[in-house]
Computed example of a mutant assay.
Amino acid sequence: MTLTPMVQCAFRLAFAFLLANQSLSTLVVPSLAAEASTGTSEFRAPIETAQFIAVNALLIVIAIWVAFGIRTRLVAAIGLTIYTGYTLSNGGFEADNLGIGIFVAFGLALPLIVAGGGAYALYRKGWSGLTDL
Results as ranks from 00 to 15, higher is better:
1 M>L: 11
2 T>L: 05
5 P>R: 03
5 P>V: 05
5 P>G: 01
7 V>Q: 13
7 V>K: 07
8 Q>F: 10
8 Q>M: 12
9 C>Y: 11
10 A>S: 13
10 A>W: 08
11 F>T: 02
12 R>C: 11
13 L>M: 13
14 A>E: 02
16 A>F: 06
18 L>Y: 01
18 L>I: 00
19 L>Y: 03
20 A>S: 11
21 N>Q: 13
22 Q>W: 06
24 L>I: 14
24 L>S: 15
24 L>Y: 12
25 S>V: 12
26 T>S: 11
28 V>L: 13
30 P>H: 01
32 L>Q: 06
32 L>D: 05
32 L>S: 04
33 A>C: 09
33 A>K: 15
34 A>V: 14
36 A>M: 10
37 S>R: 10
37 S>K: 13
38 T>H: 04
39 G>E: 09
40 T>Y: 05
40 T>W: 00
42 E>P: 00
43 F>E: 15
45 A>K: 13
45 A>M: 09
47 I>R: 12
48 E>A: 15
48 E>V: 10
48 E>M: 08
53 I>R: 14
53 I>V: 15
53 I>Y: 11
54 A>R: 05
55 V>P: 07
55 V>A: 14
55 V>I: 15
55 V>S: 10
57 A>R: 01
57 A>T: 11
57 A>S: 13
59 L>N: 03
63 A>C: 11
63 A>S: 14
63 A>L: 10
65 W>R: 13
65 W>S: 14
67 A>P: 03
67 A>V: 04
68 F>I: 15
70 I>K: 08
70 I>D: 00
72 T>D: 08
73 R>V: 06
73 R>D: 04
73 R>S: 09
73 R>P: 01
73 R>K: 15
76 A>S: 15
76 A>M: 07
77 A>C: 03
78 I>D: 03
78 I>S: 11
79 G>H: 07
80 L>K: 07
80 L>E: 12
81 T>H: 03
82 I>Q: 05
82 I>R: 02
82 I>G: 05
83 Y>W: 08
83 Y>R: 01
86 Y>M: 06
86 Y>Q: 10
86 Y>D: 15
86 Y>F: 14
87 T>D: 00
88 L>H: 03
89 S>W: 11
89 S>E: 10
89 S>V: 09
90 N>E: 11
91 G>Q: 12
92 G>N: 06
92 G>F: 02
92 G>L: 04
93 F>D: 10
94 E>H: 07
94 E>M: 05
94 E>Y: 04
95 A>T: 01
95 A>V: 00
95 A>C: 00
97 N>D: 11
97 N>W: 09
97 N>R: 13
98 L>C: 00
98 L>A: 01
99 G>M: 01
100 I>T: 09
100 I>V: 07
104 V>H: 00
104 V>Y: 06
104 V>N: 01
105 A>C: 06
106 F>K: 00
106 F>W: 13
106 F>N: 06
106 F>I: 11
107 G>P: 04
109 A>F: 03
109 A>R: 00
111 P>W: 03
115 A>W: 15
116 G>M: 05
116 G>Y: 06
117 G>F: 07
117 G>Y: 08
117 G>T: 04
118 G>T: 05
118 G>W: 08
119 A>E: 12
121 A>F: 01
122 L>I: 06
123 Y>Q: 04
124 R>D: 09
124 R>T: 06
125 K>N: 15
126 G>S: 06
126 G>N: 04
127 W>A: 14
130 L>Y: 03
131 T>D: 12
131 T>W: 09
132 D>E: 12
132 D>S: 11
132 D>R: 14
133 L>S: 10
133 L>P: 03
